[in-house]
């Protein structure tokens, strides 16, 4: 065509024989250092070591009071003593029992709410209104009321835990169900899935990334609420029977009263360790076996 711009016409060629590439490797094995520094755990652990070293050095050489900031070594020793002779593990167990009870009841209620919200418009309205209203309310703010209704004891804590579990779990599960792709819904119906079977075999797995997210958030809220609640009136719970029946929050509270600051730090460490264990070990394992394996979540 005449409107075509002038192009430089060059001769064509075809490679007769493509030889082996001689420079560089197609696939080179990474060096040991490259592989180690690629490991997340190694990098994170080295940061931890740095923090601990800085802490120990500061407390040793700055002359800061043991009552303000104990040495890392003293904290570690306190943690060891607490585990060996002060029944810290039993206290952790007490806390976990309350937590798991509250979490389980919360999940059951959340399941009912989500089912109602998915099936009917009325249920949907109930869930969205209640969630919008109650989700911003920190669970610990309900504790005074819970004490009034249920008295001093595990029941009051479980009530506040329910509040911290139900809303995030129900909300996330509902959003998950709503966002299952139209194609996948049609596939499920195509192969004859109806009613509860359809929910169990299609909607729940398809919405699992969001459901799991809700479970994680619910757990995180519940754990923080539990420790806070035990701090507030852990003392009362420990009075309910002889021996160690208090929780982890109570351990921190009581040791602060006795000015056992190293033990307070040890208690805080335990809170962190349990939290890390559940969030990074248990939930991570669930994620690796499900959503990550299925490619429904990045990494």
């Amino acid at each position: 065509m005449s409107t075509m711009p002038n192009v430089l016409v060059r001769s064509e060629f075809e490679a007769a024989d493509i030889g082996k590439a001689e420079t560089g490797d197609v696939a080179r094995k990474l060096t040991l250092f490259e592989r180690i520094s690629d490991m997340n755990s190694v990098r994170k652990l080295s940061i931890l070591v740095l923090v601990i070293a800085a802490w120990e050095l500061y407390t040793r050489f700055s002359g800061v009071s043991e009552l303000i900031l104990p040495k890392f070594s003293a904290t570690a020793e306190a943690l060891y003593l607490a585990v060996v002779s002060e029944q810290l593990l039993a206290m952790v167990w007490n806390s976990m029992t309350v937590l798991v009870t509250g979490y389980a009841i919360g999940l059951a209620i959340a399941t009912l709410l989500t089912t109602a919200a998915t099936m009917t418009r009325f249920g949907n309205d109930i869930l969205s209104t209640l969630t919008a209203m109650l989700n911003p309310l920190p669970a610990i703010a309900l504790l005074p009321l819970a004490l009034l209704w249920f008295g001093l004891g595990a029941d009051a804590i479980i009530f506040t835990l329910l509040h911290s579990v139900i809303w995030p779990v129900a909300l996330n599960a509902h959003v998950g169900f709503m966002s299952v792709s139209e194609t996948q819904r049609m596939v499920g119906q195509n192969y004859g899935l109806r009613g509860l079977v359809y929910v169990a075999k299609l909607l729940i797995p398809a919405a699992f990334p969001q459901i799991l997210m809700g479970l994680k958030i619910g757990w995180a809220y519940a754990w923080r609420t539990l420790i806070a609640a035990e701090l507030v009136f852990g003392g009362s719970i420990s009075d309910t029977s002889e021996g160690a029946s208090g929780g982890l929050g109570w351990f921190i509270f009581a040791n602060q009263m006795d000015l056992q600051i190293a033990h307070v730090f040890a208690g805080l460490f335990t809170v962190i360790l349990v939290g890390v264990f559940v969030e990074n070990v248990i939930f991570n394992a669930i994620e690796n076996r499900t959503v990550r394996r299925w490619g429904m979540q990045a990494r």
Binding site: S181, T183, N190, Y191, G192, L202, A206, F208, W294
Partner: peptide
Amino acid sequence: SEPGPDRVMVFQEFDQLLPW
């Protein structure tokens, strides 16, 4: 009257396979 396995649909979208 309703969807059924006697007429199977193949969609354009890749997410028609169940990822799990």
